[in-house]
Amino acid sequence: MISEQAKQRMRDLASRYPVARSAVMPSLHIAQLEEGYITAEGLQAVAEAINLTIDDVESIATFYTMYYQRPQGKKIIHVCTSISCYLRNCDALVEHLEQRLQIKRGETTPDGNYSLKTAECIAACSSAPALQVNGEFYEHMTNERADALIDALDQELGIERRV
């Protein structure tokens, strides 16, 4: 459900730009924040708030990879795979996370807790390899640090794992 407040925020955004269309990207972020991903209702809400067609909004929502087309986990892990992180063996890091979470990159755990994604440069080259969890940076990653991170997240999410 897109709340009335969210729709109002979209309308307010639209009125702040000389051309309402400029508000489409922040509005999509609002829709995604509300529902976790871009739903048909989210598209509709954005289209109505800034007077675009639903097709127009869909075009933009599918162009940018940070708008999710499917439900995502509570924790979205973006592992950087650009050049610096690549040279610092991000491949091993991604593979380790795949093993640990039992999902492939691009997938979400069946319990809906984690999504594992790879990303282009997240501007943390000096501390490669790096990853983000829900936008927060974790740098100088090693397999051990990754395990510790997942342990901490598990705890936060209240997940009991049998080793």
């Binding site: 048909a40 675009l52 067609t53 097709d55 127009d56 909004v57 869909e58 075009s59 599918t62 162009f63």
Partner: peptide, 18 residues
Amino acid sequence: NGLVMISRGFRMEVGTAP
């Protein structure tokens, strides 16, 4: 704005909202 480009890169295609 009824017919639009969906997705990008090698996945790009012509289409509409679902």
